[in-house]
Design a protein around this nucleic acid. Sequence first.
DNA 1: GGTGCGATCGCCT
DNA 2: GGCGATCGCACCG
Length: 284
Amino acid sequence: MTTRKRKKSLLLLPPHSESPGDQTDGKTPKRSVQCQSSESVHKSLSFSPYFSTRDDAVRLTSSFFDQPCAHLAKEFLGKVLVRKLADGTELRGRIVETEAYLGGEDKASHSAGGKRTERNTAMFMKPGTIYVYPIYGIYLCMNVSSRGEGAAVLLRSLEPLSGQDVMRGLRVAKRKEGAKTLKDKELCNGPSKLCQALDLRRCFDRRDLAIDTDVWLERDQGDDAVCCREVVSAPRIGVESHGEWATKPLRFYLRGHPCVSVLNREAERQMGSQSCMDSSGLGL
DNA sequence: GGTGCGATCGCCT
DNA sequence: GGCGATCGCACCG
């Protein structure tokens, strides 16, 4: 899987580089982020086949984030992540997949063993603090700290609700010229994809999701659709090398949702008629 | 559709 | 100097 070669191919832009609209080399086409009209943003609002939306969305405050990690990871499902760009455009996506990283004893966590470094400092900050870190040299992932020393929730997938055209522009900017057009469900179906689509950069690291003016979380009617039976608990992705912690069901996603990055049919089959309150095996 | 592989570089030991 | 909470693409059936 891993290669040691370091060719100087530039198929992808580093995610932590300035977005294409900010680039000054004159070679990259400007995307539409800076100039999309409010009308086009309104048009891009699409009705979700899975949830309904309404105008009385409520921003989530600090108290919401102060929950045990795995519990918060499940609570995130159905909530709406909002990203307000510099030009006022609001990008919205409903969270449909998360992972809990418990810190301390959790060997798959960046903060395993209570290890605190410059990079993972945000994991130890107050619940609701954003932790953005680079991975594989070219991608970013976004977490939100929870209650518990070094604990955080990784946001893995969103269902795009508004601003899809802008998201597509941000995603396309990172892909090879001539690549096929991305479907809406492909815009945010992965932890690094959602960072690209929402233009979440490293500068968001250590910012407070409860009070920030550029990114926040909302609760809306979508919550009503996230009944217990729809939540699948499965082992986390990409942590196979961490022994028993690799098998713990700390990934949560909405069953049957097309925007989930990786399905776990085995976990879904095992759910059966079991309540999700039990299926994690963690007494959540 | 599923699978395998290469890309790429910051962080950590 | 090794590794990694990923992704896109080519290839195959």
